[in-house]
Write a protein that binds this DNA or RNA. Structure first.
Lengths: 235, 235
DNA sequence: TACATTACTGACCATTAAGTCATTAATGTA
DNA sequence: TACATTAATGACTTAATGGTCAGTAATGTA
């Protein structure tokens, strides 16, 4: 059995190494926060646990005191992110009264304030990138987060259509189309390939909102010509 | 120096191993196709070159005959995907005449036919996931693919606004909002976390198109109330 | 101050996978 | 058939990192 190195930590430059601190309560969330940032930046596989630990200011051994494995850490990151997401969603679910358009606006900007803007938006990118490596986690996210977000939009659209404020639309499909710019906004916050520095998130969301409201109202009976798209051959 | 195993490949079950074939021309594209599929499924770091080679029906050594390194293979995958993307875009760029709405429809569905539907859509997901690991590649993609896609949409919107077919809008921001559902469609093809089996891509694109056209026309002068979104505190 | 407890550490081990290269065999040519 | 060329192979080397654990020191208690 090999022994430890001769230097028992307490010598050489004295105050070079910060003193050890025992903070059992704070470690887990600090570790998941560090892990979220690195997973989002580099991807799960390319993130080294040494780096996660270093970013949280502890050693790798400490990380393993709180998480069974790298995969367990990943799941904890997602789970923690979703707790906050669900809380935010539930809050917005509260009985808001107003026009469907106003409710829609509250949903879009509330999402930005409480999710899109925060580090939690990284969870969206993580799911996009790692879903096939963690099918259970992806399914969990789909059921617990997306489905609830869809429910909020569904209620809004149904109310708008019922009251005549919105024209009749394919609600389930419209939900997908409405969510896409939000998801892309979350993803592009962490992806150089998509980020467009010319537009602020607020302007982006406002443009999205205005297009939506006008698009959902539509002058009823207005005609949108729709040529059957050419499938297959070119031209 | 250690010698190879005693069995010189040609014994035991004779036809169990498919015979070696020399196909210098076909290898590179077969390898990049295999790599694209696996990179998209597992991510760059989690993909093993042994698996890429196996999927292409060759050994890892062969892979290194054609690509300097794993990173070079990644870049070749993106590059190859973009060649096709640019060709498709250029084709659609061709002098199409018709209303701005018709042109917009051609762009959306043409994108689906020639990119979104094909394995090349995986490049979109790759860029989203790996852009911080390969900043140069992300930048290249941004300049060569997104910028050209944006240019096509810009021309369309400008024409629509100039002719009065569309109301005046913040064109640069509208471009982002219009592209987001396409990018999400590409990404969700490979991400269990987002895929919604209830909607076909065609229905999705048609709903997006109809919302857009009505949203861009808007009854000019129509009022969309916009409450200043509450920033910061809750309620 | 002496002692017990335990959060924390970091050297180490084991495994995995990128990258190498001596060898093999498919193919063309005389 | 003999030979030259080179595409293809896969065992090996090496570097990196997930995971372990004997040991260290911070903190509470008497």
């Amino acid at each position: 059995m090999k022994l430890h190195a001769a230097r028992p930590l307490s010598e050489a430059s004295p105050d070079c190494r910060p003193p050890r601190r025992r903070r059992k309560e704070a470690r887990p969330s600090e570790l998941t926060a560090a892990a979220l940032a690195l997973f989002v930046e580099k991807g799960f596989a390319a993130t080294r646990l040494d780096d996660v630990a270093a970013r949280a200011g502890v050693s790798k051994g400490t990380l393993y005191l709180y998480f069974e494995s790298k995969e367990a850490l990943f799941k904890a990151v997602i789970e923690e992110g979703m707790v906050a997401a669900l809380a935010a969603a539930a809050q917005r679910l509260s009985d808001f009264h107003g026009s469907a358009a106003e409710l829609l606006q509250q949903l879009l900007f509330g999402w930005w304030e409480q999710i899109g803007q925060t580090p939690m938006a990284g969870v969206t990118k993580l799911i996009a990138c790692e879903s096939s490596n963690f099918p259970e986690v992806a399914q969990y996210y789909h059921e617990r987060v997306l489905t609830r977000g869809r429910a909020l939009l569904r209620t809004t659209l149904q109310r708008g259509v019922a009251s005549g404020e919105f024209r009749p639309v394919d609600i389930e499909t419209a939900i997908d189309v409405i969510m896409a710019p939000l998801l892309m906004l979350a993803i592009s916050r962490f992806s150089l390939g998509f980020c467009n520095r010319k537009t602020t998130p607020e302007t982006y969301l406002r443009t999205h909102f205005e297009l939506l409201v006008k698009g959902l109202r539509g002058s009823s009976g207005e005609f949108v010509e729709f040529v059957e798209p050419l499938t297959g051959g070119k031209r």
